[in-house]
């Protein structure tokens, strides 16, 4: 559905996108992740045909974006960052305008509008003026607009930015539903969003793709140490050395009050000291009320990939 090869975009004095190649196959839902200013929006604008690339080839739905922009635009629904809408129009008016603009035949327009409003949960605000709607509703009007010509591909630039947690959940649910029928490329810097909605993650940093995999596999690929948290009530002077004695435990840090002390242990990822800790506590008669291992989150991966030097971060 999307084939990007050696895409480069220069702005005066800086490189926004640097030799990026990736592909998205039909039916996929791909998360485009990166810190602010990493080149997410620029890449999406190029995909949508708003900006031209400095170099490289971008094909969307089997058409070259640079050579057949109109054909490409017919097949995509693009929601720019911050979801720009005409504030003075009514929701129905806006959707009718966009449907006609996108070449939906006149006779089919009313049915399409009813359908997208239904799917995006805005059936009850058709007569309202867009400027008076809440941010969550506006976001859904924007999504409805991207769907109005039933495109094969949706490109959504930060679709949940600026929403409150309830609205984020609604929009995220909506995107998950849309994924059943459309290929979706969505950008975000909210990591939990990607973990919940996307089958595959592209991490972009300083204009380069630094990782492309499923969230699960990315997590597994993380090497290094894991931390284990144990909360034990016992004499600190005795517990700490005993924990250090467990094989594989590299470092122990203690914090907390008189009765319950929270120990943070570092251990190699392939060793799990938890059974040994539980056995130790039982054997010595120390009450143990919490024991868990902190799995590497996408956040760790993200921080790891985007804060180290580019050379090290290359997969």
């Amino acid at each position: 559905m999307i084939e990007v090869s050696h895409l480069t975009k220069h702005y005066p004095g800086r490189v926004a996108v640097d030799d990026v190649s990736f592909a998205v196959s039909p039916g996929e839902i791909v998360g485009f992740l990166g810190p602010n200013g990493a080149g997410k929006s620029t890449t999406m604008r190029i995909l949508a045909g708003y900006l031209p690339a400095t170099g490289g080839v971008v094909r969307v739905a089997d058409h070259d974006v640079a050579e057949e922009p109109i054909e490409v635009r017919r097949r995509i629904g693009y929601l720019p960052e911050n979801c720009p809408l005409y504030g003075e129009m009514r929701v129905d008016e806006y959707l009718r305008f966009r449907a006609r603009l996108k070449g939906v035949p006149r006779a089919k327009v009313p049915a399409r509008i009813v359908e997208v409003k239904e799917r995006c949960g805005i059936a009850d605000v058709g007569n309202r003026i867009i400027g008076q709607l809440s941010k969550g509703y506006r976001q859904r009007v924007g999504l409805a607009e991207t769907l109005v010509h039933d495109p094969d591909l949706l490109i959504l630039d930060e679709p949940t930015i600026g929403l409150d947690p309830n609205q984020i959940r609604l929009v995220r649910g909506l995107i998950a539903e849309l994924a059943e029928r459309h290929t979706i490329l969505l950008s975000t810097h909210i990591l939990s969003e990607v973990e919940m909605t996307c089958k595959r993650v592209l991490i972009i940093h300083k204009g380069r793709i630094v990782a492309s995999d499923t969230p699960d596999r990315l997590r597994r690929r993380m090497t290094g140490e894991a931390s284990v948290i144990a909360e034990i009530a016992g004499p600190r002077g005795e517990v700490e050395p005993a924990l250090r004695g467990i094989s594989g435990v590299a470092d122990v840090q203690a914090e907390g009050g008189d009765a319950w002390v929270r120990y943070m242990l570092r251990a190699p990822r392939d060793e799990d000291p938890r059974p040994a800790i539980a056995a130790l506590a039982a054997q010595r008669g120390w009450p143990l009320r919490e024991l868990h291992r902190e799995a590497a989150t996408l956040e760790d991966i993200f921080v790891n990939l985007t804060q180290t030097d580019e050379a090290e971060a290359q997969p």
Partner: peptide, 14 residues
């Protein structure tokens, strides 16, 4: 100013 130029110019229209 409102950014709608981006939605307008990414619609299938020259």
């Amino acid at each position: 100013r409102s950014g709608t130029i981006e939605t307008l110019m990414t619609a299938p229209v020259t």
